[in-house]
Simulated scan of single mutants.
Amino acid sequence: MTSRPLTIGFIPLVDAAALIVAVDKGFTAAEGLDVTLVREVSWSNVRDKLNIGLFDAAHLLAPVAIASTLGLSQVKVPIVAPFNLGLNGNAITVSPALYAAIMGEADGDPLDPMVTAKALARVVTARRKAGGEPLTFGMTFPFSTHNYQLRFWMAAGGVDPDEDVRLVVLPPPFMVDSLASGHVDAFCVGAPWNSVAVDLGVGHILHFVSDILERAAEKVLAVREKWALENPDVLARLTRAHGQAANFIESPDNREEVARILAMPDRIDVNPEVIRRTLDGRMKISPDGTMRQSERYLLVGREGAARPDPVQAAWLYAQMVRWGQVAYSPEALERAKKVFRPDLYDAALGASAGSAHAVTDGVGAFDGARFDANDIAAHLGSVTIGRRFS
């Protein structure tokens, strides 16, 4: 088999695990692919280098793939995602001061996102009455799951994310320093940076994103649609390698080795133990050592996590509409759903490789509202806070 050279960009996050393991354990080489991984610091870099062809593929925020396809605030470059690199994996981390304030206002179980969202609303109101500055929350990109997850949580408790707080964009590796320096009061980011903040004593993990949405598409293996049409065999081989890597990662016997691979300086460059805790869903959530276990913290391959689900794309598109990033159209909704390509996944790995899951609407939002990917008007009509186009 002739070796095919590929260049793929990634951000140092644990949900790049399938990509990194596919390369570093030789799964891509076994498929006749010679892959060079390029570590980047910002999502705009990854997106732009993918769009102009400097990258053949990329570890990419799922909403960015949709935004690029629709030409939202960027060059219009259609993207397809044949493989989902991770479900969930994000968390909301807050400063010790904000954690104390929210706990002081919490009326009920603080693991319930509705309880903390309403507590946050009371904290925001008290700060405003006292003449204080609005709280500042960091997120990774305007078209990001982190942005939408923060907004979804806040708004459910009555906090308007555009009027009551500040949301600022920060690259993932810069989140911890920004929290430590007081530039932000909280952030939503992927692993391992929440754990790093806790280990340094500068943050408390308030919620796993899996508390807010049971299944949330996070990062995808993204390629340009034109490239996919021109290189179907190469894409199938790349997808197969990722499937093998995901299976390897999900085996508990391999977790220690995977953590060591991901921790390397040219990969994520953090303590392997932090990565191991993430893969196991065994998270230290407070500087005092309090631990929390969650089987849903990060899904790489199990429960059908790697198979792209157009329902997830529809939910992300609905958030873009809700927050005024795009006007709704049935055509755009269908185009967004077609970014996620389960057909390409099935062709490479077999339909049986995407096992069923128990979340009936494919999303599992904490507010209890059922999501219908074919009727996002109902979803949008059920919320009171938003910035939709008229």
Rank of each mutant, 00 (worst) to 15 (best):
A358H: 10
Q319V: 00
S329P: 01
Y328T: 05
A351Q: 12
V326D: 02
L333V: 10
L349W: 00
A365Q: 07
Q319I: 00
A365F: 03
G354N: 10
D372W: 00
P308D: 09
G304D: 07
D280R: 13
S355N: 08
S286N: 12
R292W: 06
G304R: 03
L349I: 02
I285D: 04
A305E: 07
S352T: 11
G368P: 01
R302T: 14
W315H: 14
T278K: 02
T360P: 01
G386K: 02
R296Q: 11
G386R: 01
G386M: 03
V274D: 03
V383P: 02
H357Y: 14
M320L: 01
A327R: 14
A356V: 12
R276L: 15
E331C: 04
V339K: 07
K284R: 15
A353L: 02
V274A: 07
D280L: 15
G381Q: 06
A327K: 15
I376G: 05
S352N: 09
G289F: 04
G289H: 05
A347R: 14
A327C: 15
R335K: 15
T360R: 13
F340S: 13
V363M: 07
A365R: 11
A369H: 13
S294D: 14
S355P: 09
D280N: 13
F371Q: 08
S286F: 01
L299P: 01
K284F: 05
A353K: 11
I376P: 02
A327L: 03
S294C: 04
G368V: 04
K284W: 06
A348K: 00
A358I: 03
G386T: 05
E331G: 05
R277S: 15
G324F: 13
T290W: 00
A378Q: 13
A369T: 10
F340V: 05
D361K: 05
V383Y: 08
D372Q: 02
E295F: 01
S352Q: 14
N271C: 08
A332C: 04
V311L: 04
K284E: 15
D372R: 03
L299D: 08
T384D: 12
E331D: 15
D288E: 13
Q312N: 12
G324W: 09
F366M: 01
V274N: 06
T290D: 05
D372I: 00
G301D: 00
V359G: 07
N271R: 13
A306Q: 12
R370A: 14
P310S: 10
Q325F: 12
Q312R: 03
V359N: 07
V359L: 04
S352V: 11
R307T: 11
V359A: 09
P330H: 13
Q312G: 14
G362K: 02
E303N: 13
V383H: 13
S382A: 14
W315M: 15
Y328G: 07
E303W: 10
G350W: 00
G289S: 08
H379C: 01
T360D: 13
D361R: 06
D375S: 10
G364V: 01
A348G: 06
L316E: 10
E273C: 02
A365H: 03
Y297E: 10
R370G: 08
V274S: 11
S329H: 08
M291F: 11
A356P: 02
A358K: 09
A313Q: 06
F371L: 08
A356Y: 08
P330Y: 12
R370L: 12
M291A: 09
M320R: 00
A369I: 09
S382L: 08
K338R: 15
A314R: 00
S286H: 15
A378E: 12
I285G: 06
L344F: 05
G350Y: 02
G354A: 15
